[in-house]
Design a binder for these strands. Structure first.
Length: 334
DNA sequence: CGTCCACGGGAAAGACTGGTTA
DNA sequence: TAACCAGTCTTTCCCGTGGACG
């Protein structure tokens, strides 16, 4: 039933994107100077998850590459590479300059220096989840490298700018910001229709079922595609020749938890214990939480480390904190 | 109103890890 | 093989905050 599994993958970037033409043209206008060999301004894409930010950034740059010979670009997920070193390393990787980098023999700021010395074609870098970047001064360093153009991506623009210092705010604060809203049901349906046409046999799924999926996804294209992919997989395993309503309803929970799972997989054991404890308790204060945590693990870390973990969990949108000082409590989503 | 104190979070020193070098 | 080192994680130290309590 599945004819092309690639188009069902979340990272698949289609040749043609739907419902985002305004955003695409805004971003490509911003990047246009590169076509004429001039310096383009940096930009920020922001909006809720599953609104198409990453997809549109990659799509637009792919388009740009058709017009600019040798244009280099690199996608960096600052969540996965949240330290200064890792982000820089990945940026150098995008221009194949990592071959002789060793921690030992490479002086401290050799990585940045090498980026500065790069004199190839223009270099467009996508910094996804840029609010997760540990050391924001890296943005300033990158800002000062003329041939690098940054496309920043975040959920909320204030997450980015509130953590920048003054000099960065005055520089990046003026950059074009492109807002992405949630998709509505019919937009999600057309997105899924394309994937169905490209990746499934004809008549494997009808519009009504796609609407059901879109409904469950609540505006999040990532969730929609995840439900879609899982439903197709289960239907194929069952030997069905089409995706039934039952199968869709069956995979909704696992599709949604799949996305959360991706997050919790990145947690350390100690962070996982904290997260589980909070989820179990529903809502818990810092003192009780630390006691429960010490009970649950053999070698508890200090309170300060727990606070570091908690703020990490909060950044990951796994938990949220209510109140500020003494009366603060932690609770988990879902 | 002043004191107390649990809490959050910045800064910096220290510990750990895994790969390099002599 | 042992000393070494950069990056990263953890701890220590510390200060500001704001609710509780007399």
């Amino acid at each position: 039933m599945i004819t092309d599994a690639r188009v069902l993958q979340p990272e698949f970037v289609p040749n043609d994107v739907k419902h985002r033409s305004a955003e695409v043209s805004h971003l490509s206008d911003t990047l246009r100077p590169i076509v004429d060999g001039e310096r383009a301004t940096n930009s920020l894409l922001y909006g809720p998850s599953g609104a198409g930010k990453t997809c549109i950034a990659q799509f637009t740059i792919e388009q740009l590459r058709e017009n600019v010979v040798g244009l280099n670009y690199q996608y960096v997920n600052c969540w996965e590479d949240h330290t200064r070193f890792k982000t820089l390393y990945r940026l150098l990787d995008g221009i194949d300059s990592t071959f002789d980098i060793h921690r030992q023999s490479t002086p401290k700021d050799e990585l940045l220096e090498r980026l500065r010395e790069y004199d190839g074609p223009p270099y467009v870098v996508i910094l996804d989840e840029v609010d997760q970047l540990q050391d924001k001064s890296l943005l300033y360093d990158l800002y000062r490298i003329p041939h690098i153009t940054m496309v920043l991506i975040a959920n909320r623009e204030e997450d980015v700018f509130s953590t920048l210092d003054d000099r960065l705010n005055s520089r990046l604060g003026a950059c074009p910001r492109i807002r992405f809203g949630q998709y509505n049901i019919s937009e999600l349906v057309t997105i899924l229709e394309d994937r169905a046409r490209w990746g499934l046999e004809p008549d494997a799924i009808d519009t009504q079922r796609l609407e059901t999926i879109a409904d469950y996804a609540a505006g999040d294209a990532r969730v929609a595609i995840s439900i879609f992919r899982n439903a197709a997989r289960v239907a194929q395993q069952n030997g069905d020749d089409s995706i039934t309503l039952d199968v869709i309803e069956q995979v909704v929970p696992e599709a949604k938890s799949e996305i959360r799972q991706k997050t919790t997989d990145k947690l350390t054991d100690h962070q996982q214990v904290l997260y589980d404890t909070i989820t179990e308790a529903g809502e818990i204060g810092a003192g009780d939480l630390y006691d429960a945590y010490c009970e649950a693990v053999d070698d508890p870390k200090t309170r300060r480390t727990m606070r570091n973990h908690l703020s990490k969990l909060e950044q990951y949108n796994l938990i949220f904190a209510k109140g500020n000082t003494k009366a603060r409590t932690y609770a988990s989503y879902s």
